[in-house]
């Protein structure tokens, strides 16, 4: 495979991934269904799947490292001004304004 073709393939893959990401965010923001929820809107005791993180890159990275990565299962233990979630076998406290930036969907598809 020539370098030129490899380069072309790479750009295509990148664009494909980036497009998928942006389309997904758009879908999350516009779709009235289950996928448009953020973590504050979920009831206590509900299990949800993380679909997208919409915070600053540094915060996103720390959230991912602590288990809140895309597709991870999270159970909200306690709501209110700040939240407590169960993720990767531990309880993690999050401020509500951060929880608003974690977009999720119910695992059983309920809204």
């Amino acid at each position: 495979m020539s370098d030129r073709k490899a380069d072309h393939d790479f750009v295509r893959t990148c664009k494909s991934v980036a497009t998928r990401q942006s389309l997904y965010v758009e879908k999350l923001q516009n779709h009235p269904g289950a996928a448009s929820l953020d973590l504050t809107q979920v009831g206590s005791g509900d299990e949800v799947r993380v679909r997208h993180l919409a915070c600053s890159p540094t915060t996103c990275q720390r959230l991912r490292e602590m288990g809140f990565c895309e597709n991870a299962l999270v159970t909200k233990i306690r709501g209110g001004a700040d939240l407590v979630c169960w993720v990767c076998g531990t309880r993690v406290a999050l401020s509500a304004r951060l929880a608003k930036q974690i977009l999720v969907e119910h695992v059983d598809g309920k809204s």
């Binding site: 750009v11 980036a18 597709n71």
Partner: peptide, 29 residues
């Protein structure tokens, strides 16, 4: 290209760890 490479690394590592734990029959309690 708006490609979040660090997110994909974290994601790939977690996928691997989950698969590993699944294969070893270890749940999260």
């Amino acid at each position: 290209e708006a490609y979040d490479w660090s997110a994909s690394v974290v994601h790939a590592r977690y996928e691997y760890v989950r698969k590993l734990l699944g294969e070893a029959g270890i749940g999260s309690g």
